[in-house]
Simulated assay, not measured.
Amino acid sequence: MTHLLPPSHSTLDDAQGIAYGGIIAGFGLLILTSLGFVTGQTAGMAVLISYATGWSFGAVFFVINIPFYWLGWKRIGPAFVWKSLAAVSLLSLTTAVLPRYVHFDLLHPAAGAVLFGLITGSALLALFRHGSSLGGIGIVALYLQDKTGFRAGWTQMGFDVAVFALALTLRDLETVAWSFLGAVVMNMVIGINHRRDRYIAT
Rank of each mutant, 00 (worst) to 15 (best):
Leu127Tyr: 01
Trp73Leu: 08
Gly77Gln: 08
Tyr101Met: 14
Phe62Ser: 12
Arg75Met: 14
Val38His: 02
Leu32Arg: 07
Gly28Gln: 10
Leu30Trp: 05
Phe128Pro: 00
Ala111Leu: 15
Leu118Gly: 14
Pro78Phe: 13
Asp105Met: 05
Ala111Phe: 14
Gly54Gln: 00
Phe104Asp: 10
Gly36Ser: 13
Ala126His: 09
Phe61Asn: 03
Pro99Phe: 04
Ile137Leu: 15
Leu93Trp: 14
Gly36Ile: 11
Leu118Glu: 11
Gly36Ala: 13
Pro109Ala: 10
Val97Gln: 13
Ser89Asn: 03
Ala87Asn: 00
Leu107Val: 07
Phe128Ser: 03
Leu30Cys: 08
Ala59Pro: 07
Arg129Trp: 07
His130Trp: 00
Gly22Tyr: 00
Tyr69Lys: 09
Ala126Leu: 09
Ser50Lys: 06
Lys74His: 09
Ala86His: 05
Phe27Met: 12
Leu134Pro: 00
Ala113Phe: 00
Ser132His: 03
Gly136Tyr: 07
Tyr51Cys: 06
Gly117Val: 06
Val114Gly: 03
Ser132Met: 05
Leu85Ser: 14
Leu115Trp: 07
Ser56Gly: 01
Leu115Ala: 15
Ser34Thr: 11
Leu125Val: 01
Ala59Thr: 11
Ile64Asn: 03
Val140Ser: 04
Ile119Trp: 03
Thr42Met: 14
Ile119Gly: 09
Gly54His: 00
Phe116Leu: 13
His130Asp: 04
Leu30Lys: 00
Ile24Gln: 10
Leu93Ser: 15
Phe128Arg: 04
Val88Asn: 00
Trp82Leu: 10
Pro99His: 03
Gly121Gln: 07
Gly44Asn: 00
Gly40His: 02
Phe104Ala: 06
Gly54Asp: 02
Ala52Cys: 12
Gly36Tyr: 11
Phe68Met: 08
Ile23Gln: 04
Ser89Cys: 09
Leu91Tyr: 00
Leu32Thr: 01
Ser133Leu: 09
Val140Leu: 15
Thr120His: 10
Ala113Thr: 10
